[in-house]
């Protein structure tokens, strides 16, 4: 079917698929670059969770703000962080988005409303709520999205954040990527309540969705973003996702049941979207071409990052204070 005659749902799916696939391919490359020592430190991949940022950011502008997590590469890429600057940061180069001072857990891009990743679990949530306060004071209809994992739910500041966001009518969509694992431990072993009841307690809308279907997720996210924008009432969107890799790259995941690990292929929003696109009449050749375009973009970005200069120590010491 010629691209111009595609239905609106197929065009939407293709758009979301492109975002998800780009995140997937970037993270696969990060995994390889980490394994061969090109990327130092430690990194946390979101492979399997790409549908959430793809769907959420589909409904955000650059003036809307997001605070992202330590598992936030996808959240950053979907929001529009420059790929060259992103990859250079992963490699600690001077041209990195944070001049090589932050790395994977601290990527930020204020030019696209990306407030920053956080190495502190739940750390970004109240900062995003503060950004929502700024949006409210600005009065321009922008909203803030704190992304967080299920591992953040037991943190005190999360509860404080829900309380103040509700109390002050802050335009804030709390987006939980629930992958069932808080680092190496089951969510059920860490949190006695549930988000639905918590949302009711704080008098805000709550929706749950399996993030395997990116289109359904996008439609729901679209409705919720619109409602938060219009009413300035905060809401919680809980997305069931599957973490395909370990907590960090190199994590042997011995704590995880073998059965769960064997079924990861069935819990993949990217391949689910691929199958749907093929069923919707998009050709395999076209999708291969899209993949190749993405890979070529990543190849070029990786090459420039590897060739980029290392940061100067004197410049870093001069950057402690504004």
């Amino acid at each position: 079917m010629p691209a111009s005659k595609r239905s609106a749902p197929t065009r939407l799916l293709l758009d979301l698929y492109r975002t998800m696939l780009r995140i997937r391919r970037v993270e696969e490359r990060l995994s390889a670059l980490f394994a061969d020592g090109t990327i130092p430190g430690f990194i946390h991949l979101s492979i399997g969770q790409e549908s959430v940022p793809a769907a959420i950011t589909h409904h955000l502008t650059n003036s809307d703000t997001v605070a992202i997590t330590h598992r936030g590469h996808g959240q950053a890429l979907a929001k529009g962080i420059n790929l060259d600057a992103f990859l250079a940061e992963m490699m600690g180069r001077a041209s990195g988005i944070c001049q090589g001072r932050g790395g994977s857990m601290h990527i930020a891009d204020s030019s696209v409303g990306m407030l920053g990743a956080n190495g502190i679990v739940a750390g970004g949530i109240p900062i995003a709520v503060g950004s929502a306060l700024a949006h409210q004071l600005d009065g321009e209809g922008n909203i803030a999205v704190p992304y967080f994992g299920d591992g953040a739910i037991a943190e005190g500041v999360f509860h404080e954040s829900l309380n103040i966001a509700s109390l002050w009518n802050l335009p804030c969509l709390f987006v939980c990527e629930n992958n069932g694992w808080g680092e190496f431990s089951k969510t059920d072993d860490q949190f006695a309540g549930n988000l639905k009841k918590l949302a009711a307690t704080y008098n805000m809308d709550y929706q749950f969705i399996d993030a395997l279907d990116v289109v359904k997720l996008s439609n729901l996210a679209g409705r919720m973003v619109k409602a938060v924008r219009k009413t300035s009432r905060p809401a919680i969107l809980e997305c069931k996702v599957t973490r395909h890799h370990g907590h960090y790259e190199g994590d042997p995941q011995k704590y995880r049941p073998e059965e769960e690990l064997n079924q990861l292929g069935d819990q993949d929003p990217v391949s689910a979207a691929y199958d749907k696109l093929i069923n919707g009449g998009v050709t395999a050749g076209e999708l291969t071409e899209l993949d190749q375009q993405i890979q070529a973009e990543i190849d070029a970005s990786v090459a420039q990052a590897i060739a980029a200069d290392h940061p100067q120590f004197e410049q870093a010491t001069a950057g402690v204070y504004a």
Partner: peptide, 21 residues
Amino acid sequence: DYPIAEASMVNLAVGAALGGY
């Protein structure tokens, strides 16, 4: 007036400061 919740209060200030306040 902020609730008795110092952790989020100072974090909200960080977020508002990043937002130009």
